[in-house]
Protein backbone atom coordinates (compact mmCIF):
# COMPACT_ATOMS: atom_id res chain seq x y z
CA UNK A 1 0.00 0.00 0.00
CA UNK A 2 1.20 3.48 -0.77
CA UNK A 3 2.18 5.59 2.25
CA UNK A 4 -0.15 8.31 1.06
CA UNK A 5 -3.12 5.96 1.18
CA UNK A 6 -2.01 4.61 4.54
CA UNK A 7 -1.81 8.14 5.89
CA UNK A 8 -5.23 9.00 4.58
CA UNK A 9 -6.68 5.83 6.14
CA UNK A 10 -5.10 6.71 9.48
CA UNK A 11 -6.38 10.24 9.18
CA UNK A 12 -9.87 8.99 8.44
CA UNK A 13 -9.74 6.83 11.56
CA UNK A 14 -8.66 9.78 13.71
CA UNK A 15 -11.21 12.17 12.27
CA UNK A 16 -13.91 9.52 12.33
CA UNK A 17 -13.28 8.86 16.01
CA UNK A 18 -13.37 12.59 16.69
CA UNK A 19 -16.63 12.85 14.77
CA UNK A 20 -18.20 10.01 16.74
CA UNK A 21 -17.07 11.62 19.99
CA UNK A 22 -18.51 14.94 18.90
CA UNK A 23 -21.84 13.51 17.81
CA UNK A 24 -22.12 11.42 20.98
CA UNK A 25 -21.31 14.19 23.38
CA UNK A 26 -23.54 16.69 21.64
CA UNK A 27 -26.43 14.33 22.36
CA UNK A 28 -25.41 14.09 26.00
CA UNK A 29 -24.68 17.71 26.75
CA UNK A 30 -26.89 19.65 24.40
CA UNK A 31 -29.25 21.94 26.24
CA UNK A 32 -31.97 24.17 24.88
CA UNK A 33 -31.08 27.83 25.02
CA UNK A 34 -34.34 29.74 25.27
CA UNK A 35 -35.78 33.12 26.03
CA UNK A 36 -38.47 33.30 28.72
CA UNK A 37 -41.16 33.60 26.03
CA UNK A 38 -39.84 30.52 24.25
CA UNK A 39 -39.74 28.66 27.55
CA UNK A 40 -43.37 29.54 28.15
CA UNK A 41 -44.30 28.22 24.71
CA UNK A 42 -42.23 25.05 25.23
CA UNK A 43 -43.84 24.26 28.56
CA UNK A 44 -47.28 24.50 26.99
CA UNK A 45 -46.27 22.33 24.03
CA UNK A 46 -44.28 19.75 26.00
CA UNK A 47 -44.66 19.66 29.80
CA UNK A 48 -41.76 17.18 30.15
CA UNK A 49 -39.44 20.09 29.53
CA UNK A 50 -39.77 20.77 33.25
CA UNK A 51 -37.83 17.57 33.92
CA UNK A 52 -34.94 18.33 31.57
CA UNK A 53 -32.58 21.15 32.20
CA UNK A 54 -32.67 24.23 30.01
CA UNK A 55 -30.66 27.39 29.66
CA UNK A 56 -32.49 30.67 29.63
CA UNK A 57 -31.05 33.96 28.50
CA UNK A 58 -32.84 37.03 29.79
CA UNK A 59 -32.47 40.36 31.49
CA UNK A 60 -32.75 40.88 35.24
CA UNK A 61 -35.79 43.00 36.14
CA UNK A 62 -34.50 46.12 37.93
CA UNK A 63 -35.37 46.20 41.60
CA UNK A 64 -36.28 42.52 41.77
CA UNK A 65 -32.97 41.28 43.13
CA UNK A 66 -33.06 39.90 46.68
CA UNK A 67 -29.63 38.81 47.77
CA UNK A 68 -29.11 36.55 50.71
CA UNK A 69 -26.37 38.05 52.86
CA UNK A 70 -24.44 34.78 52.73
CA UNK A 71 -23.62 35.65 49.13
CA UNK A 72 -24.68 32.16 48.14
CA UNK A 73 -28.30 32.62 47.20
CA UNK A 74 -30.19 35.16 45.17
CA UNK A 75 -33.79 35.46 43.99
CA UNK A 76 -34.70 37.71 41.09
CA UNK A 77 -37.07 38.11 38.15
CA UNK A 78 -35.86 37.67 34.60
CA UNK A 79 -37.63 38.85 31.50
CA UNK A 80 -37.35 39.25 27.75
CA UNK A 81 -40.14 41.79 27.64
CA UNK A 82 -42.78 39.16 26.86
CA UNK A 83 -42.59 36.62 29.64
CA UNK A 84 -41.17 36.91 33.16
CA UNK A 85 -39.99 34.18 35.51
CA UNK A 86 -38.82 34.24 39.09
CA UNK A 87 -35.38 32.67 39.48
CA UNK A 88 -34.01 31.06 42.63
CA UNK A 89 -30.28 30.52 42.36
CA UNK A 90 -28.06 28.86 44.95
CA UNK A 91 -24.32 29.07 44.61
CA UNK A 92 -21.59 31.68 44.45
CA UNK A 93 -22.94 34.80 42.80
CA UNK A 94 -20.67 36.11 40.06
CA UNK A 95 -19.35 39.62 40.55
CA UNK A 96 -20.83 40.67 37.24
CA UNK A 97 -24.38 39.99 38.44
CA UNK A 98 -26.53 43.02 39.21
CA UNK A 99 -29.78 44.79 38.37
CA UNK A 100 -30.71 44.85 34.69
CA UNK A 101 -27.72 42.90 33.37
CA UNK A 102 -28.18 40.12 30.85
CA UNK A 103 -27.93 36.72 32.45
CA UNK A 104 -27.86 33.12 31.34
CA UNK A 105 -29.28 30.71 33.89
CA UNK A 106 -29.23 26.95 33.70
CA UNK A 107 -31.61 24.75 35.64
CA UNK A 108 -35.20 23.53 35.76
CA UNK A 109 -38.54 25.19 35.83
CA UNK A 110 -40.25 24.07 39.05
CA UNK A 111 -43.93 23.13 39.30
CA UNK A 112 -44.53 26.38 41.17
CA UNK A 113 -43.31 28.37 38.17
CA UNK A 114 -40.05 29.37 39.86
CA UNK A 115 -36.93 28.63 37.85
CA UNK A 116 -34.48 26.71 40.04
CA UNK A 117 -31.08 27.69 38.69
CA UNK A 118 -27.90 25.74 39.26
CA UNK A 119 -25.62 28.00 37.26
CA UNK A 120 -25.78 31.72 36.80
CA UNK A 121 -23.73 33.56 34.20
CA UNK A 122 -23.93 37.31 34.06
CA UNK A 123 -22.54 39.28 31.20
CA UNK A 124 -19.82 41.67 32.08
CA UNK A 125 -20.86 44.95 30.57
CA UNK A 126 -17.62 46.13 29.07
CA UNK A 127 -16.32 42.77 28.06
CA UNK A 128 -19.33 41.68 26.10
CA UNK A 129 -20.53 45.10 25.14
CA UNK A 130 -22.54 45.29 21.94
CA UNK A 131 -22.59 48.60 20.20
CA UNK A 132 -26.20 49.68 20.30
CA UNK A 133 -26.75 48.44 23.83
CA UNK A 134 -24.99 48.96 27.10
CA UNK A 135 -24.29 52.44 28.28
CA UNK A 136 -26.24 55.09 26.45
CA UNK A 137 -25.85 58.47 28.13
CA UNK A 138 -26.76 60.17 24.87
CA UNK A 139 -29.38 62.35 26.48
CA UNK A 140 -29.45 64.18 29.73
CA UNK A 141 -32.64 62.39 30.71
CA UNK A 142 -31.19 58.91 30.39
CA UNK A 143 -28.13 59.87 32.38
CA UNK A 144 -30.36 61.23 35.14
CA UNK A 145 -32.35 58.05 35.14
CA UNK A 146 -29.17 56.04 35.45
CA UNK A 147 -27.75 57.96 38.40
CA UNK A 148 -30.30 60.22 40.03
CA UNK A 149 -28.15 60.95 43.07
CA UNK A 150 -25.45 62.48 40.92
CA UNK A 151 -27.56 65.26 39.56
CA UNK A 152 -29.27 65.89 42.88
CA UNK A 153 -25.97 66.56 44.51
CA UNK A 154 -24.85 68.80 41.70
CA UNK A 155 -27.93 70.97 41.90
Amino acid sequence: MQPRIKFLLGGAVVLGAAGVLMAGSIKNTAVYFLTPAELQAKVVADPTIRETGVKVGARVVPGSVERDSSGKRVVFDMTDGEATYKVDYRGLIPDTFSDSVDVVVEGRLGADGVFQATTLLAKCASRYEAAPEGYKPATRASYKAAAPTTTQRLN
Binding site: N28, T29, V31
Partner: peptide
Protein backbone atom coordinates in the same frame (compact mmCIF):
# COMPACT_ATOMS: atom_id res chain seq x y z
CA UNK B 1 -34.16 26.58 18.32
CA UNK B 2 -30.93 27.50 20.02
CA UNK B 3 -29.11 24.58 21.56
CA UNK B 4 -25.91 25.01 23.49
CA UNK B 5 -23.27 22.48 24.38
CA UNK B 6 -21.51 22.52 27.71
CA UNK B 7 -18.01 22.08 29.01
CA UNK B 8 -18.40 18.30 28.85
CA UNK B 9 -18.74 18.42 25.05
CA UNK B 10 -15.39 20.17 24.71
CA UNK B 11 -13.75 17.86 27.21
CA UNK B 12 -15.18 14.67 25.69
Amino acid sequence: SKITVGESFFNA
